[in-house]
């Protein structure tokens, strides 16, 4: 467990930041966030977020744009050096991030992109295996620009999984893909997560995507956790399952969407 402490200076403690909770959390959680604040005052982006993710648990973080969900993900990824804040974050040693853009280095081959930062002596073999897992065997030598958007995002998935992460952070990874590709990618991600069992935090604004993939859905509103819903396994995989529509309506209401007007 590697904990990075987000500038513990100033700002009063938030509820949940008690030492007792802290000592217990790492033993049961892959991720533990306590009293996370990013940005201060009326314009604060995160205003005291508490979140635990169990090992192997798939959590979807829902929220309207500007609610702070990307800020929370970036805080977990350790990418917010220059953002003022406070709180305690504990994440596993091996964390992988998938961004909304595939973020492949254009000057490196597909294989080179997957092995980026790997120090194992058999990095190439591992990367080939990961590429085969995402259905891109044989494309190792291609340049990123020769791939379609969906293929590029699959390379990004391979790059994150080849590191065998204990925590996978995904920031709207399918947001830039077309609807058909997105559905295929949902299936792929579900299979990959089932095979590798990382804890997952998926940031999305798509309620259906959240229900389809997550064990638990957290709705963020104005920088606070507003709603938490468990997703029963039988609901996630079947749209016609009992309770699916109810959960969907419930979440949309939590997101401030007028369900009566938008229902179909």
């Amino acid at each position: 467990m590697a904990a990075h402490f987000g500038g513990l200076t100033a700002v009063g403690s938030s509820p949940g930041t008690t030492p007792r909770t802290l000592r217990e959390a790492p033993t049961v959680s892959a991720v533990s966030v306590r009293g996370l604040i990013r940005g201060f005052g009326p314009k604060g982006v995160l205003n005291g977020v508490d979140l635990d993710i169990a090992p192997g648990e798939f959590v979807a973080l829902l929220g309207p744009s500007g609610c702070g969900k990307s800020t929370l993900l970036r805080a977990l990824a350790g990418l917010d050096h220059d953002v003022k804040g406070s709180g305690v974050i504990s994440v596993p040693d091996r964390v992988s991030v998938v961004f909304q853009d595939s973020r492949l280095l254009p000057w490196d081959s597909v294989l080179g992109n997957v092995t980026l930062g790997l120090r194992d002596h058999d990095a190439d073999a591992k990367a080939r295996k990961a590429l085969a897992e995402v259905g891109l065997a044989g494309r190792e030598k291609a340049w990123p620009h020769e791939l379609s958007g969906g293929e590029q995002q699959r390379v990004a998935l391979a790059r994150s999984l080849v590191r065998e992460p204990q925590l996978l952070l995904a920031d709207e990874p399918f947001g830039a893909l077309d609807a058909l590709t997105r559905i295929k990618m949902h299936g792929l991600l579900r299979d990959l997560v089932a095979a590798h069992r990382p804890a997952v935090l998926l940031v999305t604004h798509d309620v259906d995507e959240a229900i389809a993939l997550a064990d638990r859905i957290v709705v963020l509103d104005s920088g606070r956790v507003a709603t938490v819903r468990k997703v029963a396994p039988e609901i996630g995989t079947a749209v016609d399952a009992a309770g699916h529509e109810a959960l969907r309506r419930n979440l949309l209401t939590a997101l401030g969407v007028d369900v009566a007007a938008s229902s179909h």
Binding site: L79, V95, V97, D101, R103, L116
Partner: peptide
């Protein structure tokens, strides 16, 4: 964005220069 990526995949400073900066 590539600098962020280099950080998330755990590139060393030398690796960052060789794989990202120079190319």
């Amino acid at each position: 964005r590539y600098v962020e990526l280099a950080q998330t995949v755990g590139l060393s400073r030398a690796g960052f220069i060789r794989r990202v900066v120079l190319p």
